[in-house]
Write a protein that binds this DNA or RNA. Structure first.
Length: 419
DNA sequence: GCACGAATAT
DNA sequence: CATATTCGTG
């Protein structure tokens, strides 16, 4: 857009007249009868105005068309006016083209632009599917949202299988909403191998640190994806696609030193949340219990612990934004910073005891989209309850104990961890 | 020695 | 940021 050629520049408005107009004026100039001239001019203007209306809807996408039409209309009107005024008719010369119509096609380099086009062409273009299409595609503002929503929805409703890790190029654990914001899309949509996310899909490889350092990517999943270019390096142990036994995983882990990043797919998370509910909430549930309930093969305590930690973290710090904790939110799913947490656990009430939900998919999840990018809007509902319990928590949060280090030195437990 | 939560590293 | 690891404790 910023490339408007001189001819189209607003600065030239008074001088720039498309050839078509020029030719038209030339014709008109040949007419002796002034009234005829005027009527002809008016007719043309009218036609242009009509065209203008037609493309009005596309003005955003066809600014140049609008501009040209507008220019033409102005010029013709002026001409018409002058004509009537002088009753005679000299003028037209000023509109005489410097180039010939024939030049149209090739002349200027920018020629590609509308400069060479006639109004009609322009109009045609305007009505042209192609343009419309472009226009439409460029509108994406809502598209994005829609996309996001839909995909999201998809996940929620059918989340049976695969899941984001695989379906999305760079998918990450939960629903990677943010990712696709418009541009990003282009990235390698690696559709590589079907790494079944679900279950624990631990994607297998451990390209961990090495590759992580190279790309710095933080997409857990993508990282895990076996054959991605970035991972090429770690190919030496191409990942066993799916179910990779713990055994194997461990083995690999040993080799690489670092554990493979677990991709917490929505499904996985769902189970996690489910387990939480059954256990009475994130504040009381312990990693081990959770893991047991989740019944996910290969899932480790540490992983659950880690996830739980984050979960708590997120659920607990409710935006001081007060309010918004409408009861309605209770079963909501919340999103923050791109991740969606399903805080369904409002076990506060019912849920807890009922084992009913264990296997079955949880009820309808609702999304509380918070695209704001701003941080959180965690639905904590239940967490409120928990906050009550958070007593114990509070002391934790009061980390402030600086003495810690000192103690540490004193205590100096040499044991296990050091290894 | 295990399980946790918190802190820190990646 | 999300996840993994480490640390300090009970």
């Amino acid at each position: 857009m910023g490339l408007v050629p001189p001819e189209l520049s607003l600065d030239f408005r008074p001088n720039f007249v498309p050839k078509t107009i020029t030719n038209f004026l030339r014709e008109v100039s040949l007419i002796g009868n002034v009234s005829d001239k005027v009527s002809k001019l008016d007719a043309f203007v009218k036609g242009l105005e009509e065209e203008m209306k037609k493309i009005d809807a596309f003005k955003r996408e066809l600014p140049l068309c609008m501009l040209l039409l507008n220019d033409a209309i102005l010029v013709l009107k002026e001409e018409s006016t002058q004509c009537m005024a002088r009753n005679v008719e000299p003028v037209l010369e000023e509109f005489i083209p410097l180039k010939n119509k024939e030049e149209d096609n090739h002349s200027e380099e920018d020629g590609s632009l509308i400069t060479t086009k006639k109004e009609e062409d322009c109009n045609n273009d305007c009505n042209n599917n192609k343009d419309k299409k472009n226009w439409m595609s460029s509108v994406q503002l809502w598209n994005i949202d829609g996309d996001y929503c839909s995909s999201d929805h998809k996940l929620d409703t059918k989340r049976n299988d695969e899941d984001p890790c695989k379906s999305r190029g760079g998918g990450r654990g939960f629903m990677p909403f943010k990712a696709n914001l418009g541009f990003a899309a282009r990235k390698e949509e690696k559709q590589e191998i079907p790494v079944h996310g679900l279950t624990l899909s631990t994607p297998g490889i451990k390209n961990l640190k090495e590759e992580s350092s190279s790309t710095g990517s933080r997409n857990s999943c993508s990282r895990a994806v076996p054959f991605s270019a970035t991972n090429a390096r770690s190919s030496f142990q191409s990942a066993p696609p799916v179910g990779l036994s713990n055994h194997l995983q461990q083995h690999q882990q040993q080799q690489t030193g670092r554990k493979q990043r677990r991709c917490w797919s929505p499904e996985l998370h769902r189970r996690f949340v489910n387990a939480l509910q059954q256990l009475g909430g994130s504040q009381v549930a312990t990693p081990k219990q959770i893991r047991d309930l989740m019944q996910v093969d290969g899932l480790t305590n540490d992983e659950v612990k880690s996830h739980l930690q984050k979960y708590r973290l997120h659920t607990r710090r409710l935006p001081a934004t007060t309010t918004t904790t409408t009861p309605a939110n209770q079963s909501g799913l919340v999103l923050g910073g791109g991740h969606a947490w399903m805080c369904q656990d409002q076990f506060g009430e019912s849920s807890k005891g009922s084992s009913s939900q264990s296997g079955s998919p949880q009820g309808p999840l609702q999304l509380a989209t918070n695209t704001g990018g701003t941080s959180t809007t965690w639905c904590e509902s239940m967490e409120d309850d928990e906050d009550a319990k958070s007593e114990c928590y509070s002391w934790k949060s009061h980390v402030q104990k600086p003495s810690k280090n000192n103690w540490k030195s004193h205590v100096q437990k040499p044991s296990k961890n050091n290894v």
